[in-house]
Nucleic acid binder design. Structure first.
Lengths: 347, 347
DNA sequence: CAATTTTATGCAAACGTTTGCATTTTTCAT
DNA sequence: ATGAAAAATGCAAACGTTTGCATAAAATTG
């Protein structure tokens, strides 16, 4: 019997007069180990307080049973909702998740990609930084055939599995909804266009304007990181001179909420004078008065699809083209008081 | 030159005619490797596309540079806020974080503890399940001297490092505040008492009543998991018969919000007829109308303290007693409209 | 320049598993 | 009882690092 404090399968083997390989196989329920031996081994393992060492197994197998997840930040509603699902589902498949936050820093994202590779994760899911346009720091995963999935904030010309919301449609529906509610002068608050999904939402916005023969005005579109502070500043600019817009389509809910608060503070009636639509269906939109219309992105569905795709990729269940295919998760416009005049409201 | 696809330090060594140990030391900036050699090694490492294998290093060192984090769920405001901080700070110290959700299932928590031990994490931070009263599944970490920290939902009689909010004071201040606002009949909605912090908030509630000579009435206290559904049911019971209470102290914000919504729906004026106080200072409390008074638990501070304590424990910077010491993070009552009659409100 | 110290490098074992292949034991049909 | 097939077990190498100790090379000293 060994004297080290950590018990290993070697200790079990010695204790039982078996070989290490038999013990290993017994613990892993290998078919050609007799039931009797399995029982003996497992009993002894319990008795000795044996604990498997995943690092040793991982080294030998070249598998870590761990998935890396990179999101901008887990404190924001949408990535948090997705991360929850991903973690829970992957756990069901026996995988751990290393969650990392890039804090929207490209530099950090690069570092995280390297760290995750060092940890030899068996797969990676990424929602990129606002500013990631060069994705080459993820090349290593593609080279080594490690499943790599981008979601939500996805690359445009990088050959990789993508799962994203229908941002074009979301932008379109949000804008068309405002138009249908009578808006003729709609401000669009967008994130930086280095991030693909804002491009698409913007395209949807433009498309809706065009369809309804409304002019697109450059000075009615704002671009900035969608923080509270920036939103407030935008509001100040928007409402610094008349005519006020009669609608605001903000591409996230924090921004929509901030605009609403600005309006409340300055006596601008929502929805009568100005209608507001947000994006993501953050729980706060439902709770604020008036409740804010927003585009639901079905984070649960997206999370489930990400996990399903991850397992598919790990088990290579599909033709190679699957590695680069794109999935679009539907979105839905949730109409609320911020964009619908009382009385006219659908039930 | 080896033919395997993964380049290792062996490849670098062969390529350079050096020994593996020298290469290893060079890459780790060991002091007695000459600068020239270090340069050669690092250049060759880059040239070959060498990537360190953390599992191999971990196995050898018996260190994973990974910390395990168990929380009930990362989609809830408070644990999410803490997890963000913990992950970001630990990353600065070169640690990865495996975030796990127990979903408030004791069974799952046990499994997660075992998995984290298998991964040979270098430390564990836990916010326990609502129903964890036996903590023996964490014994292994104590036995092996692996830093173990409980936060927020902490054990009572389990000898371990604890970092928690001042729940007694929070309960006391919330209740006293309601009393000072004129409440004489205050409902308390508590979580299950198997979870220690609810016990303390309840004690604070009782203490405040006593101090102000108000009777404690058993039928004014409710115990259940603090979900939206349960809160709505509680509201129905609370307001099913007169006299209505004139104050509600809910021990989480989801509950407080739900009670408020119930009141709004049923024409019960808040704060005039019934005042409401929540717990955690969830961003939603600030946004709802009327804004809800809540107890801020300073998640950022708590997260930072957890990380600081973790690093202290890992580096054994303190006398052994530190392993079992308890830290209390201050709380603050944030007064808002839900509990303060208009006009009387402090600026 | 020899002796000694300092600096740089190498050898080999160890970390705890898993697995292909070889060997032994058991089972079964003849 | 014999031989062949099936089932169970064992051997030893491998996974990619790190590190104590030994050795070699260089620098320093008298």
């Amino acid at each position: 019997m060994s004297t080290r404090s950590e018990k290993t399968i070697v200790d079990i083997a010695e204790e039982l007069g078996l070989s290490v390989s038999t013990v290993s196989r017994a613990l892993n329920d290998h078919p050609n180990i007799s039931v009797k031996t399995k029982d003996r081994v497992k009993k002894m393992a319990r008795k000795l307080g044996y604990r498997p060492n995943a690092m040793a197994a991982g080294l030998r197998n070249n598998k870590s049973k761990t998935i890396g997840l990179i999101v901008p930040r887990i404190s924001m509603f949408f990535p948090a909702a997705i991360s929850t699902i991903i973690q829970n589902k992957l756990h069901e498949f026996g995988y751990n998740v290393i969650i990392c936050q890039s804090n929207d820093s490209l530099e950090l994202e690069i570092e995280l990609a390297n760290t995750l590779y060092s940890a030899r994760v068996d797969g990676v899911a990424v929602s990129a930084t606002l500013y990631t346009t060069d994705f080459s720091h993820f090349d290593i995963f593609k080279q080594k055939n490690i499943p790599l999935i981008f979601f939500d904030r996805t690359p445009k010309d990088y050959n990789v599995k993508v799962i994203k919301g229908d941002d074009f449609l979301g932008g379109f529906l949000a804008t068309e909804h405002l138009i249908e509610q009578g808006c003729k002068d709609i401000v669009h608050i967008s994130g930086p266009l280095s991030c693909n999904l804002y491009k698409e939402r913007l395209a949807g916005y433009k498309d809706a304007l065009q369809k309804h023969k409304l002019p697109f005005k450059k000075n009615r579109v704002f671009f900035h990181e969608l923080t509270r502070e920036n939103a407030w500043q935008a509001a100040e600019r928007i409402f610094s001179q008349k005519p006020y817009p009669d609608g605001v389509f903000a591409t996230n809910d924090t921004t929509a909420i901030t605009i609403l608060e600005y309006c409340r503070k300055h006596g601008i009636q929502v929805p009568q004078q100005c209608k507001i639509v947000g994006y993501s269906n953050d729980p706060r939109t439902e709770i604020i008065t008036p409740a804010i219309t927003s585009v639901d992105q079905y984070p649960a569905t997206m999370g489930e699809r990400i996990v399903a795709a991850m397992m598919d990729l790990i088990q290579a269940r599909h033709p190679p083209a699957y590695r680069h295919s794109q999935e679009i998760v539907p979105i839905q416009l949730i109409e609320r008081e911020s964009s619908v005049d009382a009385g006219k409201r659908k039930k």
